[in-house]
């Protein structure tokens, strides 16, 4: 008995130490983010001098000055722009990637394995190799200065990652279900809508989440195509706080708007954490 007790105590001590270590390291990890959130409520002149987390004075001035935005366009507009753009991107990816994944994962047709291999190659392709001609092409279409260069590719399943993720998921669904439905007179199109889509909801949520997040966080495409302050996304607008020389005139406002820009990803993450973990663990999503 004494030995067992001793072992239990030893394990408890070791576990407590591990907990302590994980918590300490975790605090260090999130400290910059916490500091940003708290500093965004400090008066502008105190941001520099105060490294602590407990603010000596609180103000929402930074949010008021930051919200005014850029070139007469307020941050409210930038948020609406970003949200609508992300919503359109999510819809596009859900439709196009689910369709492609159903074809690759379930349907039988000539050349399926070949095209699947081609799709897997595009997964590894660095996006920059197509960026110049795409820009020239979208310019010919008159799309530069609109959301179309960002949204339209989503409707054409160009995010091979999500096609792959959905193919993996669809292949794991029991085949007997579609076979039974076909015997009952359901068409292959019907199987997609009545069986595959409802069963693939968890994977589709993952796709929607990451599409939203990556479109929200993306900067390169926003920099190229969103050329007019009226259509700026949040991330494109944040860049204007940091001028070309890298100098920031209104740090308080910059930190306040930066903090606000992190709120949507944060809410999504904590409300749908399960899907994040599944998505990352099954496909090794980059990030």
């Amino acid at each position: 008995m004494g030995l067992v007790n001793k072992m239990i105590t030893k394990t408890t001590v070791r576990h407590s130490l591990t907990h302590l270590f994980i918590i300490a390291l975790g605090l260090l990890m999130v400290y910059p983010v916490l500091w940003m959130i708290i500093s965004s409520f400090k008066p502008n002149n105190m941001i520099f001098s105060d490294p602590g987390l407990m603010p000596k004075a609180l103000t929402i001035d930074n949010y008021i000055t930051g919200w005014k935005g850029y070139a007469g366009v307020s941050f409210g507009r930038f948020f609406v722009n970003s949200l609508l753009m992300c919503a359109a991107a999510v819809i596009g990816n859900l439709i196009a990637c689910a369709m492609a994944a159903y074809a690759f994962g379930r349907l039988k047709f000539d050349g399926r394995n070949f095209w699947f291999a081609v799709m897997m190659v595009t997964l590894m392709l660095p996006g920059h190799v197509t960026i110049v001609p795409r820009y020239i092409l979208f310019n010919v279409f008159g799309w530069v200065g609109s959301y179309l260069p960002i949204i339209v590719p989503k409707f054409l399943a160009t995010d091979a990652f999500f096609v792959f993720l959905l193919v993996q998921f669809i292949r794991s669904l029991p085949k007997e279900l579609d076979e039974a439905a076909i015997i009952d007179g359901c068409s292959e199109v019907g199987v997609f809508f009545r069986i595959i889509v409802p069963l693939a909801v968890p994977a589709l949520v993952t796709v929607a989440l990451f599409t939203f997040l990556w479109t929200w966080d993306d900067f390169f495409n926003h920099l190229l195509y969103l050329t007019n302050p009226k259509i700026f996304s949040v991330s494109r607008a944040l860049r204007t706080f940091v001028g070309d020389s890298g100098a920031v005139s209104n740090w308080g406002g910059a930190l306040a708007m930066s903090t606000l820009s992190l709120v949507p990803p944060f809410i999504l993450f904590f409300s749908l954490q399960k899907y994040f973990v599944q998505g990352i663990a099954t496909t090794g999503i980059k990030g």
């Binding site: 994980i22 918590i23 975790g26 990890m29 999130v30 910059p32 983010v33 500091w35 940003m36 941001i47 997040l213 929200w216 966080d217 900067f219 991330s235 494109r236 944040l238 860049r239 706080f241 940091v242 890298g246 920031v248 740090w251 910059a254 930190l255 708007m257 930066s258 903090t259 820009s261 992190l262 990803p265 944060f266 993450f269 904590f270 954490q273 994040f276 973990v277 990030g287």
Partner: peptide, 24 residues
């Protein structure tokens, strides 16, 4: 804990964190 450690990855690619990094 896993969620807490994922926070930097969740937010790190954004312009906001780059602005913060300059400041830090």
């Amino acid at each position: 804990y896993r969620a807490v450690y994922y926070i930097p990855t969740l937010l790190g690619g954004s312009v906001a964190i780059a602005v913060l990094w300059r400041k830090l």
